[in-house]
């Protein structure tokens, strides 16, 4: 059996080969991206007497990734390099590849396709995707670390007025703490309006804001307004994780 016949046999016949350039075959296999496009896998025939095939993408994986995501920071590049290193995939000017003996083409192709999928998944590191995790991460931290203060989600301090909802009400002192996660300017305005209404009605409470990004996540005017309405603000989730428990403890013993 030739290497390609062996490969076809291992794929149970569900594979074809198309010559894209002399010595370069495209592998047409039932391996697809989420958008329906086929995973780009090519076989470069052995050169320089090495006897090994090169299983590669001819740069298509990174090209596809840039439709929606760029490796434009050191951190992104570090993660990319780590994916390649941990999967023993090489990169040459944006082209990903592995070398494989002729009788090992089938596992090499599956392994390579898996690595391509991991690199392609880096699109989920997009800013808006990470941002969308903010509220989940805040909820997780409150549940894990602040459970002793009896957190109640979606509290309504003014009965029958669900437009003034509090993300979490906690008991850590003489007055309840109303805690709000603030991801953007829209939420900042909503929280400001709610706190001003609670104050106008004379409710005893302390307003605690946990921002995703106080410096650049909301506009300057919204920063001024929410600062005026809040009793305590944490500029980031990391800051809240570092200092929030101590703040709650101080409130408890006050």
């Amino acid at each position: 059996m030739t290497p390609l016949e062996l490969l076809k046999d291992r794929f149970n016949g569900h594979v074809a080969f198309r010559e894209r350039r002399p010595g370069v075959l495209q592998v047409v296999a039932p391996l697809f991206h989420e958008d329906g496009d086929m995973v780009d896998i090519f076989l470069d025939e052995p050169r320089n007497g090495s006897g090994k095939f090169r299983v590669g993408d001819h740069g298509m994986t990174l090209m596809r990734l840039t439709y929606a995501f760029d490796l434009d920071t050191e951190n992104k590049q570090r993660i990319f390099n780590r994916i390649l290193a941990e999967n023993r995939v090489q990169e040459e000017n944006g082209r990903l590849y592995v070398e494989a003996d002729p009788e090992r083409l089938y596992p090499a192709i599956l392994h390579f396709a898996q690595t391509v999928a991991k690199v392609s998944s880096m699109q989920f590191f997009k800013r808006e995707v990470i941002q969308s995790l903010f509220y989940e991460q805040l909820a997780e931290f409150i549940e894990e670390r602040l459970g002793q203060y009896n957190p109640r989600a979606h509290a309504l301090p003014i009965p029958d007025h669900d437009e003034y909802e509090v993300d979490y009400e906690l008991d850590a002192g003489p007055r309840p703490l109303y805690l709000f996660g603030v991801k953007d300017s829209d939420k900042a305005r909503l929280v400001t309006i709610s706190c001003l209404e609670f104050q106008r009605r004379g409710l005893p409470f302390k307003g605690v804001m946990v921002h995703q990004d106080f410096e650049s996540g909301i506009t300057r005017k919204d920063r001024v307004r929410i600062t005026s309405a809040a009793d305590k603000q944490f500029p980031s989730l990391d800051d809240f994780k570092d200092n929030g428990p101590r703040f709650f403890e101080r409130e408890r013993v006050a």
Partner: peptide, 20 residues
């Protein structure tokens, strides 16, 4: 509204056996 971008259209060359 922060819900993330939506790819509306992509015009592609013949890069492989596309299958939807």
């Amino acid at each position: 509204d922060g819900t993330g971008e939506l790819i509306l259209l992509r015009c592609n060359g013949p890069h492989g056996d596309f299958n939807d």
